[in-house]
Amino acid sequence: MTPALRVDGLGKIYGPGTTADVAGTGPGFNRVVSPTSGGIVAAWDVSFEVGPGEALGVIGESGSGKSTVMRCICGDEEPTTGSIRLASVDGGGTDLRTLSPARRRALRVDRLAVVYQDPAEGLDLRLSAGGNVAERLTAAGWRNFGRIRERASELMLRTDVPLDRMDDPVREFSGGMRQRVQLAKALANNPPVVLLDEPTTGLDASVAASVLDLIRDLLEELGVAAVVVSHDFAVIEMLTQRVVVMHHGRIVEAGLTDQLLEDPQHPYSQRLVGAARG
């Protein structure tokens, strides 16, 4: 079966430097900055697939390249090399990098949604919760006010945003509620692939737990393919079936989430799991 999302050999180098500089970096050298040019190899040779209804975790410490990979997939950053394919675009036959920036951006409307750690990145805080959802719907061509209201209310209900707050500006909302609105907006047009970048980081424990519950239910119910980026094992364990571990811009280990957390093989994974389990 065609994977909903397929990433092959993705690499991103910041600053000066060419692919030749990749040699001196990575876990083996314990560095991401090229000793020859000073270019930063934020991610290199990152490949994975996510099937429909599956959730893949990307875990690693700060600076390991997780967010870079995600930003490259969704189009916020242009990768240096590699290919990204969606089953919903030409049956996976087209590398998204060959699309025009306009078409690339258009994918965000209904093919590839992103939930950011900071709700301000995914939402317009001046608009109402309903308005934020309406933005996605109107971008997809919805032109019926009544139906937009209906769909927005439906999404608010589904993401546990009180309906009587639907017309209040998002800037008046708490962090947890903003994150729920961001989820509602991301799911507005039923995208087959959702990227979640540290979706609960920054929320206090009880709020994070309820948002996490919500995300898990939504992923199960909607059958979307999800990539969950997090440094938090609890999040990865709860949401994902498979996981890749990133270190210094490379994937050092990949496997089933349960297995990898119980029995990590790579020394870095062992350290990471050890640190989390105390």
Binding site: D124, L127, S128, G130, G131, A134, E135, R136, T138, A139, R143, F145, I148, D167
Partner: peptide, 12 residues
Amino acid sequence: ARMWVSLYEDLV
């Protein structure tokens, strides 16, 4: 889309 949203917000 954002022009439409401003009309939506106005109506709401």
